[in-house]
Design a protein around this nucleic acid. Sequence first.
DNA 1: CCACAGTTAGCGGTATACCGTTATTTGAAT
DNA 2: ATTCAAATAACGGTATACCGCTAACTGTGG
Lengths: 248, 248
Amino acid sequence: MNGATDASAPKSLRETAYEELRRRIVNLQLAPGQRLIERDLAAELQVSRIPLREALQQLQTDGLVVIVPRRGAIVAPFGVDEVRDLFDVRESLEVLAARLAAQRADDSHLTALRDQLTAARSATARDDKPAIAAANAAFHAVIVEMSGSPLLQSMLQPLATRVQWLFHLTKERDPGQQCDEHAELYDAIAAGDADRAAEVAYRHVASGREPSLELAEHWSAPAIDPVEATRTRQRTPRRTDRSRNDEA
Amino acid sequence: MNGATDASAPKSLRETAYEELRRRIVNLQLAPGQRLIERDLAAELQVSRIPLREALQQLQTDGLVVIVPRRGAIVAPFGVDEVRDLFDVRESLEVLAARLAAQRADDSHLTALRDQLTAARSATARDDKPAIAAANAAFHAVIVEMSGSPLLQSMLQPLATRVQWLFHLTKERDPGQQCDEHAELYDAIAAGDADRAAEVAYRHVASGREPSLELAEHWSAPAIDPVEATRTRQRTPRRTDRSRNDEA
DNA sequence: CCACAGTTAGCGGTATACCGTTATTTGAAT
DNA sequence: ATTCAAATAACGGTATACCGCTAACTGTGG
């Protein structure tokens, strides 16, 4: 039904920093390779370095950030290789999720699933991009929840975030096709047909692979080396007594 | 080739704390459900709470620890459900790793793989338990490295740790069979036969499932609820003036 | 003996401050 | 100018200290 994290949570600063940074990365406000300096970010987000550091670590486990020990952090590179790896793993795990969901489906989850499907459909009709994305994401989230495996859930969550990131990098896919594929998946799950659900889920993921890879090659990423990228330091030139007067 | 983390790393306190705690958990020195109190552990490991907290978070992403926000941390429960979920996911990902390894095999990796296989064989002959475990772990590590997917690697690493944990909980499996299955897997990979490698890897993982589940049911874990488990506090009874005199 | 209200203190969350390493600057010598 | 070394400061790592929430204790009245 929801998928939202407990609304009554007072939200720690770590959490807010984490969410904000994640948002900025997925939004491309922070580009891959961008240096992330603890003090600066802490100041900007109005928190101390402690919760900020923890947020960065969390982002690293999501694969959105790379931390080089004793050096610093950058937004994770996201090139063709990473896209390929992402699809490899998703093809495995989303298939598993669909299969388990089909085996363990129950009515309340099924209706939730159908609700998201219709929501996505109507959003597609209105051409409401954010709503489409939200509904589709929720659709997947319900399937993962249906799988009943917290472990699988914890592994797919970061992948979903990366998919969303990829989506922003590649600018969309056909929402109509998305919906049709989801509908097919829903039918298989509702029928409790694990093999068919697995098959459909596989095709659903795989169908996005080639287009994404093609687009990924266009970015022609400069192939960032994290350890090199964290080598430089920003320094405000120290001013002499004379240069102090030269200022505007 | 190696799998060891860069030897030239000066090792931060966070890292040492992380490794030590992981060791204790996998060793069962810290049992599932055991409460982990930041100050106490920090004092025991001779570090401050900052690196300790970070170590705990890292352990959480490995699935060895559960952190309940604003409450505290416990060693992650590991019951029948978790074992089942672990096998579900491993069946998917180890198959993928084997498949990719077969596709991307190169000579240096293949020899490394064979080396681990023979090492495991000779260790089995000597009945050297730790060496067997090490060689088998290294065997898997090489396969994962061969897959050439840092993402997959990052996802399988925590699972390997959990498998090791499970191993301690269930007290071993037949080393001979392990070796035979590994040999079969090696052949398939060396032949570049991805489908066969995938098939063998699947059976290899799946064969451990039932025995492990059976053993898991024996622990008859009290089914720990993390949020409940972190509710209590240890308090040294405050002493009155009179009771102060009563001490030995 | 039990219930309930007030008090104490366990414990996680966070800010601040210091340390060590190392990239940049600066400036003197060539 | 170019090189090289000493000086400076950027930045990650960590210790310490404080805050707030709430569980555990206390003791008073039933």
